[in-house]
Simulated assay, not measured.
Amino acid sequence: MSPILFAMPGNKGLTGQLGAALNWPVGRLQVHYFPDGESNPRFLDEVSGRQIVIVCTLDQPDSRIMALYLAAKVARELGATRIGLVAPYLAYMRQDARFHHGEGITSMHFAQLISGCFDWMVTVDPHLHRHHALSDIYTIPAVAVQAAPAISRWIAAHVTNPVVIGPDAESEQWASEVANAAKCPYTVLQKVRHGDRNVKISVPDSSRWQGMTPVLVDDIASTARTLIAATGHLHAAGLPAPVCIVVHALFVDDAYIALQDAGVNRIVSCNTVDHPSNNIDVCTQMVTALQQLAQLTDAS
């Protein structure tokens, strides 16, 4: 029997797309919000004796996580046999160390919360830095789907004479993977962050990239300060307006408009967070992971 997909609020489009690709039914999940803000999930289709999959991307996580947690717990209460989570954007991965006295490693605590109410998880390009794999902090089977192949295909199909540019040294392996698959060169910028909205960028010798189209690639665009600073330096170096590609288009406050105003050619994102810039579909990669995990948990 196929698992049933359920969409948390704001995730119906992606859930329907996954259901069509997998040939899995899409159930009805209603979340009622009381006047004081409390959430009350209600499954309008039977979940008893079934494996279910809840789809919820986790941008603006604090406004989403309680309803998601309760949905999983209610499904378990109603007799669901296995509960999977599809979180195309996985929040709470940045705080992977104790940077200041009195702080905690909140990525670990968030992982404990999710691991305690779901049986498995699929996400796309989580922010793995000091945690080298999701299994470092998650105790459930968790697959991190890579967006790089889809990004490479988009670059090859839509950008003339591209050069892929990573925003910092940490992005080199990812930028090289995207560039190699797109059959184009790459380089990496040097970034120094002085705060959430204060980023300094230095650009290597750009003489060899004259006449090429710079393609800035980043995993997360939140304030977009890194991409804005990089765009300014590329203009100063005499390069054309860059194409900016991000996996997770968070774009808080006026970040999207500010990046447009910085003089970019185009802004493109993957469909992990619903946004007008979505043009790169990563559903195919998620489908493969979902099939594997659903079969694995059914077999167990």
Rank of each mutant, 00 (worst) to 15 (best):
A72V: 01
A72M: 07
K73C: 11
K73M: 09
K73E: 12
K73S: 12
K73T: 15
V74S: 04
V74D: 03
V74F: 00
V74K: 00
V74M: 04
A75L: 04
A75F: 03
A75H: 02
A75I: 03
A75P: 00
A75Y: 02
R76C: 00
R76F: 00
R76M: 01
R76T: 02
E77N: 10
L78T: 00
L78Q: 14
L78I: 00
G79Q: 04
G79S: 06
G79A: 06
A80T: 02
A80S: 13
A80K: 01
T81I: 01
T81L: 11
R82C: 02
R82V: 04
R82Y: 05
R82K: 14
R82P: 00
I83V: 15
I83G: 01
I83E: 01
G84V: 03
G84C: 05
G84P: 04
G84W: 03
L85D: 05
L85Y: 03
L85F: 06
L85P: 06
V86F: 02
V86E: 05
A87L: 08
A87G: 08
A87F: 07
P88Q: 07
P88A: 11
P88S: 06
Y89W: 13
L90A: 07
L90Q: 08
L90N: 07
L90H: 09
A91N: 06
A91M: 08
Y92V: 06
Y92S: 07
Y92C: 10
Y92D: 07
M93W: 09
M93D: 11
R94H: 09
R94V: 04
Q95H: 13
Q95L: 10
Q95T: 12
Q95S: 11
Q95W: 09
D96N: 07
D96G: 10
D96C: 09
A97V: 10
A97H: 11
A97Q: 13
A97F: 06
A97M: 11
A97L: 09
F99R: 08
F99N: 06
F99P: 00
F99D: 11
H100E: 15
H100N: 14
H100I: 05
H100Y: 12
H100R: 15
H101S: 15
H101W: 13
G102H: 12
G102R: 13
G102T: 12
G102I: 12
E103N: 13
E103D: 15
E103W: 12
G104R: 12
G104E: 14
